[in-house]
Amino acid sequence: MADYKPNEMMTVAAARALKNDDVCFVGIGQPSAACNLARLTHAPNITLIYESGTLATKPNILPLSIGDGELCETALTTVSVPEMFRYWLQGGRIKVGFLGGAQIDRFANLNTTVVGPYDKPKVRLPGGGGAPEIATSCGEIFIIMAQGKRSFVDKLDFVTSIGHVSGGDSRAKLGVKTKGPTKLITDLAMLEPDPETKEMTVVSIHPGVTREQIQENSGWPIKFAAKVGETPPPTQRELEVLRDLHAQTNRAHAEAA
């Protein structure tokens, strides 16, 4: 078996969740790496959309910002930001939204706003950006986040964007018709919402990871599905493409300095 890092397993597992005919709204960082890995491996025709207005973009290097020239130059077309949010996102054209966050709770609500109280924050985070409406307007949401006690918390300091709210049918009761988070991909496991309670539940464990490890890195008593599988490890090709993408990206960003 190839030697790989937990972070690489996470990106590969997230990439595999995407399909060739998906239309995907991509966030910067981990989501962007996963989406482009999917495009360069099993999903060459996936449509990637960044909130800077670039539609169907095919970057050769990963962008550092959401509106790098690389995205625009390789896009089918680039629209204005109001059009992006009104026609494409709010208009219901996006199938999958890919999000990350600083904190997540058991119902996959996300915080990217503050740690501590809003008026006297311990750490001020960048804020919601597109997330509040991505979370409710995309057909479904995939979340990619490394696990840890500080990020997988019992109670969020601030709800920036909703997942399954307080579980059960609470999301639908707010009038939201989209599915919300259907997959949570971490560096240890894959989680999906329980069909009834909507609590994020471990359905697959990455190779070499134990249930105890998953629990130790979660701030609530984590649930495991009745049948838990093992995530297939990254293939040689997946690792090669991912590492090559990161190497090209680092080279390009260093050159620009």
Partner: peptide, 13 residues
């Protein structure tokens, strides 16, 4: 006017 800010905490602050 738009479809947004559903369920989160931003409207509270």
């Amino acid at each position: 006017i738009f479809r947004g800010y559903i369920g989160g905490d931003l409207p509270k602050v």
